[in-house]
């Protein structure tokens, strides 16, 4: 569908589906803390080699800015394979070599348990029952948010075929496994006696572990792998956010007749502005747990779920209800985070006498969905203009090629399939 319609951003789809461009701002906003996390990762790695922190931050920012300003989207894509090989190598060496040095995983888990016993309830080696809802909602919220980000969707939408999307989706568990191994390195760091740094707190655990346990040259290689591993997604994110702005805001509202050159120049400037915004998050956001930056991004981007994911299935929602739901979700999630002083993304939700710790993204999404579902019939009843759905059922079902017409798409479909679509279209789109 994206190839047929020429969609590059999720906001492109929502503009056609619901005749609304409100989504673009959320994508740009939500990308900033995520980029901040990547810049911070590069900063911590450079600082671990003894470089003063201010200089580390400046270097991290300059590397990212120069990289994206000169090369666009293609260089990060080219570098991705090398980056993955470097990171896989470092992680595999770390989970095999360091545990052998420390006497095996048995010793490591023993050391972690001893720390949990000694901490008197502030640290747990196994998830306590009270944290189950927080963990479950964090997993659910993060999983749903992942494919709503402009950078992941831009990657998917710009692929050549469904086959590529399927193949990449099949390979994704390999990355999840890698992340599991990296999480295990947190336990290894405890067993190796790594203490939180006074400046970077426990965010420095892995670089400090590498610096302590690896020889100097391999530690240097590991930090380079971390830096490249952070640079590539940060570059893709800032470019995706910039293209979201130029395609869905600048060209649509400010300069509809702009040339491709003007669009590219605007994208470069916006990409730089997004990175400056990310820098502001590093300077002003409490970074006791840097992962909160990503979790904040998740809370914001998850609020686009009704328009993007549910929009794929139905156009029943009223576009004004979607916008109000989006704002309601953003406001709820942000207020929950503010009430926690930006130190945690888990909010203790009180339901009568029951208090359930939940990842703020999930209750915010519930508020968003409730607003969408309740306000849609109301707006329809009041006759508020709903815009026009420019997508067709054939867009969703056929195997289109760029430039093909709707009649060609319909002719590709089996008679049964066509009946199903016609029937479903009648239910979902009674106005057409």
């Amino acid at each position: 569908m994206a190839r047929h319609r020429g969609y590059v951003t999720p906001a492109d789809f929502v503009r056609d589906r619901f005749d609304s461009s409100a989504l673009a701002i959320t994508g740009i906003l939500a990308t900033m803390p995520y980029i901040a996390l990547q810049i911070y990762g590069i900063e911590v790695s450079i600082a671990q080699m003894g470089v003063p922190i201010e200089i580390s931050l400046i270097i991290a920012f300059a590397i990212l800015a120069a990289y994206t300003y000169t090369s666009g989207l293609r260089a990060p894509a080219m570098i991705a394979v090398v980056k993955d090989m470097c990171i896989w190598l470092v992680v595999l060496v770390a989970v095999i070599y360091i545990p052998i040095k420390l006497g095996g995983f048995g010793n490591i888990f023993k050391a972690v348990h001893a720390k949990a016993v000694a901490s008197g309830g502030t640290f747990h080696d196994v998830l306590p029952a009270a944290e189950y809802p927080a963990y479950a909602t964090l997993a659910l919220g993060s999983a749903l948010a992942l494919f709503l980000y402009p950078h992941t969707l831009t990657g998917i939408l710009s692929t050549n075929s469904r086959k590529v999307v399927r193949r990449n989706a099949a390979l994704l568990p390999a990355y999840t496994f890698l992340i599991g191994l990296i999480c295990l390195l947190g336990y290894v760091a405890i067993a190796a006696g790594i203490d939180p740094s006074p400046i970077y707190k426990s965010n420095v655990a892995l670089p400090a572990l590498f610096a302590k346990e690896f020889s100097a040259w391999f530690a240097g290689f590991s930090f380079a792998a971390i830096a490249i591993g952070a640079l590539t997604p940060a570059a893709i994110m800032s470019i995706a956010a910039a293209s979201l702005f130029t395609r869905n805001i600048y060209r649509e509202y400010f300069h509809p007749t702009c040339t491709e050159r003007e669009e590219a120049n605007t994208a470069r400037t916006v990409s730089l502005a997004v990175k400056v915004g990310a820098l502001a998050f590093i300077l002003f956001f409490p970074l006791t747990l840097a992962i909160n930056l990503q979790l904040l991004s998740n809370i914001w981007i998850l609020q686009t779920l009704p328009a993007v994911f549910l929009g794929l299935y139905t156009n029943w929602f009223h576009r004004r209800a979607l916008v109000i739901g989006l704002l309601g979700g953003l406001l709820t999630g942000t207020l929950m985070i503010i009430s926690r002083g930006f130190e945690s993304s888990v909010f203790p939700l009180s339901l009568g006498s029951l208090t359930i710790p939940m990842y703020a993204a999930v209750p915010a999404l519930v508020v968003n969905l409730l607003l969408c579902v309740c306000l849609t019939p109301l707006f329809k009843l009041l006759g508020v203009s709903n815009g026009r759905d420019n997508t067709t059922a054939a867009d969703f079902e056929a195997h289109p090629v760029a430039g093909s017409s709707e009649s060609l798409l319909l002719s590709q479909m089996t008679p049964n399939g066509r009946d199903d679509i016609t029937e479903r279209e009648g239910v979902l789109n009674p106005t057409r």
Binding site: S45, I46, M49, G50, V51, Y67, S71, R74, A75, P76, M78, I79, V82, K83, C86, A211, A216, W217, F218, A219, G220, F221, F223, A224, A225, A227, I228
Partner: peptide, 30 residues
């Protein structure tokens, strides 16, 4: 204090990978 051995390897690896990306970028047909 800066660990020059670590920093040296960091700079070499980082620069090599970046150059590789730009080289591939320059060679790509579009």
């Amino acid at each position: 204090m800066v660990n020059w051995e670590m920093l040296g390897v960091f700079i070499v690896v980082f620069t090599a990978v970046t150059i590789l990306a730009f080289w591939a970028f320059m060679l790509s047909p579009t």
